[in-house]
Write a protein that binds this DNA or RNA. Structure first.
Lengths: 225, 225
DNA sequence: TCCGTCATGATAGTTTTACTATCATAATTG
DNA sequence: CAATTATGATAGTAAAACTATCATGACGGA
């Protein structure tokens, strides 16, 4: 089995974590630790302890834990886009491509053997629970200028082009896609923690099926003429 | 002019900040300071300095800054619900009521003279920029059990009942409302900071008009039979 | 094989945050 | 007038979020 590597924007890190043993360990275990502790209680000191390295060494890879979170988010969205590209190969009908994309976005994430070091299930939980913290900061504009959100933007843009192709008159393709990408995670979060804000059931398999149906309904009705 | 007071869940605070001069000053200036610094850089120490009080005194009102943020959010959503109630008085047609609600949600917030101490414009910016931090924590479930999110839930539920009345067969009224409430803020945030993720224009007056149109289109199409 | 560089580890130190505790004092209330 | 209670003043602690310095060991080239 081939091992793939997603190309990441160099502004996300100080030293490329995919290049070295320690770097890969930082990625691998930071996912597990953030999933376990939550982003606020997660510290580089605790991570250092877990991987039997030092705080200083981790700081050589990432400026701070915020950048690490942005990196993980970026990796996640690039991974989702890659999976959509993979699954829409040779699908000629745009509406079909859109449906596949929505399916991948809404479905339960499982281990991808192409990326053995990454626990995609844990990463999915992190992105669901913490992703807003990656851009809801006073430094958004600087981070954006450095291109830290290109992974997400790229995915958003790709799906928006499907929509434009299906209905060129629809005025809000980008807004609709970014709304739906967010809604997908938000509704799963609500299903688990604030059930009265959703109509999804707590059971996760079921919730994912409802998620897919909900997104499809919103999107296809919105872009219908 | 009457001065109103919104009834808040006592679990949100240690001592009721609406009851005392100092408490009201904490609310008033914390809004200004969080707006200015962002939630991460905001501390009780800095707030104490600003209002010429002490850290210890502020801790007597709020357990920590997280609870204060939850309080401000809760106040905001209760305020929005009150404005919707006010504006839908004597409107018999449900679709009209829904449209009014969407208008209030999406429109630019301005000073409400009924609540002289609260800078609603600044609070609106805070909720747009920071609100997800109020529930994206490892303590969501405890906070939820204490009823800290009842303000938001109540608003969500109210609008969902409009939708059920308009189309009782629609399967996702709560999901649609919570999606749209979030989208409203998110799209305005994107318009300012990540414009490629939205189709709204940067200009805020214009963005609010597009916001309203976008929300209306999504909602009314989604619930159409 | 020797030299240089470079990644990592070990250690220590700083500032700030997020509290907690104690005591004095001033205002209010019964 | 006594008792309570809100606030202020001050101090202190543990942890977080870094920064700096130096030693070591691996590795790659000459």
């Amino acid at each position: 089995m081939t091992t793939l590597r997603l190309l990441m924007n160099p502004n996300l890190f100080l030293r490329d974590p995919q290049e070295t043993e320690l770097g890969r360990k930082i990625l691998e275990d930071s996912i597990l630790l953030i999933d376990e502790l939550g982003f606020e209680k997660f510290t580089f000191k605790k991570l250092a302890l877990k991987i039997e390295s030092t705080e200083a060494s981790i700081y050589r890879y990432f400026e701070n834990k915020h950048k690490l979170l942005v990196y993980l988010n970026s990796w996640y969205w690039s991974w989702v886009e890659y999976r959509i590209d993979f699954s829409t190969q040779n699908i000629l009908n745009v509406a079909d491509r859109l449906e596949i994309a929505l399916k991948i976005i809404s479905e339960k994430k499982v281990k991808d053997p192409f990326f053995p070091q990454i626990d995609e299930e844990a990463l999915d939980r992190i992105v669901i629970a913490e992703s807003d913290k990656a851009y809801q900061t006073k430094q958004v504009d600087e981070d954006n200028k450095e291109g830290l959100f290109l992974g997400y933007k790229s995915l958003c843009h790709k799906i928006a082009t499907y929509i434009v192709e299906i209905n060129p008159e629809f005025k809000y393709p980008n807004s609709l896609v970014s709304t739906v990408l967010q809604a997908s995670h938000q509704q799963l979060f609500y299903a688990q923690h604030l059930p009265s804000l959703t109509d999804f059931t707590g059971d996760s398999t079921c919730a994912n099926a409802q998620n897919k149906e909900f997104l499809k309904e919103i999107v296809f009705k919105a872009i219908s003429k």
